[in-house]
């Protein structure tokens, strides 16, 4: 049997019962916040690069970009390697793992006159629906070709839904070139 623990109600003093001291205390606390807020001395104001009122950073003028951590997960994008080969081979593992089903890939064959014909396969179309993407990074984690990365960009806007779907060109434009990745399709291959 569980032990029953009887906890006594706290004994309130007259001051507690009157509420007034507690209310005064609360008013004083908020007042001190107001004063330090107006003087720009709120705790953490410097660290947060405050505009001088409270701790709030003025967003479009000031940005966090340079202090984003290494592991920051922004928009997903496709990358090319040193030789401008698109790294994605459309294995569709990201499409499979994607929890909100934001990725849609149409696989295609690389024509035999292409310099990278030995890779055989690449995406014909690669769409990521940014209205669905939840920035979980599973696509990056599952990719066997190191072809998709979550970038530090986080400003994705569009004036309608179709603009929020990143197609293959857009994804390569965001991703750009990445060097020093594993190259499975080297000359030995």
């Amino acid at each position: 049997m569980a032990e029953i623990k009887v906890i006594k109600r706290p004994q309130l003093s007259l001051g507690d019962k009157l509420y007034l001291p507690a209310i005064a205390k609360g008013l004083f606390l908020t007042f001190t916040h107001a004063i330090s807020s107006l003087r720009g001395t709120t705790r953490g104001a410097k660290k947060m690069r405050s505009s001088g009122l409270g701790v709030t950073m003025q967003y479009p003028e000031e940005k966090w970009d340079d202090s984003l951590p290494e592991y920051y997960r922004g928009v997903p994008a496709l990358v090319t390697n040193e030789e401008d080969r698109e790294k994605c081979v459309s294995c569709q593992l990201c499409e499979f793992i994607c929890p909100p089903k934001a990725i849609k890939i149409t696989p295609g064959e690389i024509p035999s006159d292409d310099p990278w014909a030995k890779v055989e396969k690449r995406p014909q179309a690669f769409d990521i629906d940014m209205t669905r993407c939840i920035y979980c990074g599973m696509c990056e984690e599952v990719c066997p070709e190191e072809a998709i990365f979550l970038r530090k960009d986080y400003v994705v806007t569009g004036s309608d839904r179709s603009e929020m779907v990143h197609d293959k060109d857009r994804l390569y434009e965001i991703g750009g070139k990445r060097v020093g990745l594993v190259n499975k399709w080297n000359d030995l291959k």
Partner: peptide
């Protein structure tokens, strides 16, 4: 504005 200042914020500015 005043509530923002009380809460270390900026408010509509």
């Amino acid at each position: 504005r005043f509530s923002a200042i009380l809460q270390d914020r900026v408010g509509p500015n």
